[in-house]
């Protein structure tokens, strides 16, 4: 557990000192939301699409954050020294996933707020509980899949374009589930609250599956590249 927290702290400290998330990713994600609004050009359509657009922007931003999380490891072969310090590579995996989770959660909070402000989405009463649960579980899935595929493409030539190509199809179930559940939380006409909670179940299963698969695959993935 200490190792996990230490790795996460290290990543978050690097992030805090360089402020990549704040300076580049958050503006990028907000820009995506603004561009969607311009492209759709209809307030009714925007309100209907708000949940899906928030999670699309999250998926794109995740690619950037993951890229960054592994660039700091590969640049000085830092990953090798990191793995040499710990007995279990799976702890490094969970540590990096935890740091990604914290960053993506902050980003999700900004984007949901932006959806309320820009798209007119509204959340009230017990729907807030659903929304928070959705954001936590979906961000958990994004963090584990992101860490896993970040490790897959780390050290590869052309990894900038390979990461989205490999990771986005895998994230499709998460996009479907998170969008539908968020729609329910935004009080959409098409999905009621109970169905929203059913989608949260899917998100939980998804995060657990990729959390364990990632921990298992992390060791062979990082070994082969050294």
């Amino acid at each position: 557990m200490n190792t996990i927290v230490a790795v996460a702290k290290k990543d978050l400290r690097i992030e805090w000192r360089t402020r990549t998330l704040l300076a580049r990713v958050v503006p990028f994600a907000l820009l995506v939301l603004v561009l969607f609004a311009v492209a759709l050009d209809s307030e009714a359509l925007l309100l209907r699409a708000a949940a899906g657009l928030v999670w699309m922007a999250m998926l794109f931003s995740t690619m950037l954050v993951v890229q960054r999380a592994f660039d700091i490891e590969t640049s000085d072969a830092a990953m090798d020294s990191l793995l040499a310090c710990t007995a279990q590579p799976s702890r490094v995996f969970y540590g990096k996933a935890l740091s990604l989770f914290v960053q993506l959660f902050a980003l999700a909070a900004v984007l949901v707020t932006a959806a309320v402000v820009l798209y007119g989405a509204s959340v009230n009463g017990n729907r807030v509980v659903l929304l928070v649960t959705v954001v936590v579980t979906a961000t958990g899935g994004l963090a584990t899949v992101g860490t896993l595929y970040g490790a897959v493409v780390a050290n590869m030539t052309g990894r900038d374009s390979l990461l989205p190509l490999l990771a986005l199809p895998v994230l499709a179930p998460l996009l479907i589930a998170a969008s539908r559940a968020t729609e329910a939380a935004f009080g959409s006409q098409t999905i009621d609250l109970a169905n929203g909670w059913a989608w949260v179940g899917v998100l939980v299963v998804y995060a657990i599956v990729f959390g364990s698969a990632g921990a298992a695959a992390f060791s062979p993935l990082t070994e082969s590249d050294s």
């Binding site: 896993l148 897959v152 590869m156 490999l166 199809p169 895998v170 499709a172 179930p173 479907i176 589930a177 059913a198 989608w199 899917v202 299963v205 998804y206 599956v209 990729f210 698969a213 695959a217 062979p220 993935l221 082969s224 590249d225």
Partner: peptide
Amino acid sequence: QRASRSSVIALLAVLEIPLVHFSVVL
């Protein structure tokens, strides 16, 4: 190296497809 990378991706695809199918059906 090609073998080890691509086999991991192929095995992850096996994991992914049922999840995609299930969520799309739902």
